[in-house]
Computed example of a mutant assay.
Amino acid sequence: MGWIAILAALSGAVAVAAGAFGAHGAEGKAVEWLKTGSHYQLVHAVAALIALRLDARGPAVTFVVGGAIFAGTLYLMAIGGTRWLGAVTPIGGAALIVGWLWLAWSVRG
């Protein structure tokens, strides 16, 4: 559980930094990409920590990895990465959906 919690906490920190950069240092479409990425990454960092408390390690990992892929591709595009990264973003989104479904299955009682 320890390394997943550490990654989730670091993910939250990256999300806040990206959101702050989007609010104060970015322009144009980059602002929206940073805002969207930071929102999703922060929500799923918290979701990962909650999943760990519910003893649902698999969903927690899926939230951290999915959030990194989803937000990371948006962040890279925001700082000048190629637009084809936008085609990878939905893979992260799909992982986030899988994480939620897996969490629901894990805690079904």
Score class of each variant (00 low, 15 high):
3 W>F: 14
69 I>F: 07
90 P>M: 13
25 G>I: 05
79 I>H: 01
21 F>V: 05
39 H>V: 12
13 A>I: 14
12 G>K: 03
92 G>F: 04
49 L>H: 07
47 A>V: 02
24 H>Y: 07
37 G>M: 10
21 F>Q: 02
40 Y>K: 04
5 A>P: 12
50 I>H: 02
23 A>P: 14
97 I>V: 14
6 I>L: 15
29 K>Y: 05
82 T>C: 02
20 A>G: 13
25 G>A: 15
85 L>D: 10
62 T>W: 06
38 S>H: 07
105 W>D: 09
37 G>N: 09
12 G>I: 06
70 F>L: 09
66 G>A: 07
65 V>Y: 03
85 L>N: 09
21 F>S: 03
72 G>Q: 06
107 V>C: 15
12 G>C: 11
61 V>W: 14
16 V>W: 04
81 G>K: 03
95 A>K: 00
49 L>Q: 10
49 L>A: 10
86 G>M: 07
7 L>S: 14
56 A>P: 09
108 R>H: 15
78 A>E: 02
53 R>Y: 03
4 I>Q: 03
37 G>K: 05
67 G>Q: 00
102 W>D: 14
14 V>F: 15
104 A>I: 12
61 V>H: 04
13 A>E: 08
72 G>A: 07
27 E>P: 02
89 T>Q: 09
97 I>L: 15
80 G>E: 03
63 F>W: 08
30 A>C: 05
33 W>D: 11
28 G>D: 06
33 W>Y: 15
76 L>K: 00
106 S>K: 12
67 G>H: 01
57 R>S: 10
92 G>L: 01
